[in-house]
């Protein structure tokens, strides 16, 4: 672990970022303006990237920022603009049976939290010996992707191509 030497500092970072993320995530689904929601989504995605760095996966963190914040959010914003959502207040973004969704969400969180606390308890993230194996993360990731996981990688690239073509076919006017 890159920062494992100082667990306290790491924890401080974690909780500050996590609090911001939780807040932003809830704002994404409660705010009354779609563009604002997108901005809060950027916060969450950036937070996730930060958590990746805390978890010593800097390559994934970089990809997260590049792909999500750089591409996905921009795409979403384009979507917002193209569907002419008003840039001001959007009153009725929530449907009439939102309570059903709230119940589902709370129940899901309850079950997950219960089972996680029950099963993992206070188990440390850094089990013995795990630390040393994660040095040179990026190199290992590239080794894995272009070695053992080459076929899935290729399939995913074909999938992306397919999605690209599909998106064009769906969205173009003719």
């Amino acid at each position: 672990m890159v920062l494992a030497a100082d667990a306290f500092a790491q924890n401080v970072f974690f909780y500050v970022i996590a609090a911001a993320m939780a807040f932003s995530a809830i704002r994404v689904v409660t705010v009354k303006n779609v563009v604002h929601a997108a901005m809060y989504l950027v916060m969450v995605l950036a937070g996730v990237g930060a958590q990746f760095i805390l978890l010593a996966s800097e390559f994934v963190a970089a990809t997260q920022v590049l792909v999500y914040i750089g591409a996905v959010v921009v795409l979403v914003l384009f979507g917002v603009m193209l569907t002419r959502a008003k840039l001001g207040q959007d009153v009725n973004l929530t449907n009439d049976y939102w309570w059903l969704g709230a119940v589902a969400a709370v129940m899901i969180f309850g079950v997950m939290a219960y089972s996680l606390l029950d099963y993992y308890g206070d188990e440390p993230l850094d089990t013995a010996g795990a630390e040393s194996q994660l040095v040179d993360n990026t190199g290992q990731v590239s080794d894995a992707i272009f070695g053992q996981y080459l076929v899935p990688f290729e399939i995913i690239s074909v999938l992306l191509l397919g999605a690209l073509v599909g998106a064009i076919v769906l969205a173009r006017k003719d």
């Binding site: 939780a22 689904v29 929530t94």
Partner: peptide
């Protein structure tokens, strides 16, 4: 888990 549940709520509501 928090992110997941929030997302589920958003999808449903």
């Amino acid at each position: 888990a928090i992110l997941f549940s929030t997302g589920v709520y958003g999808v449903l509501a």
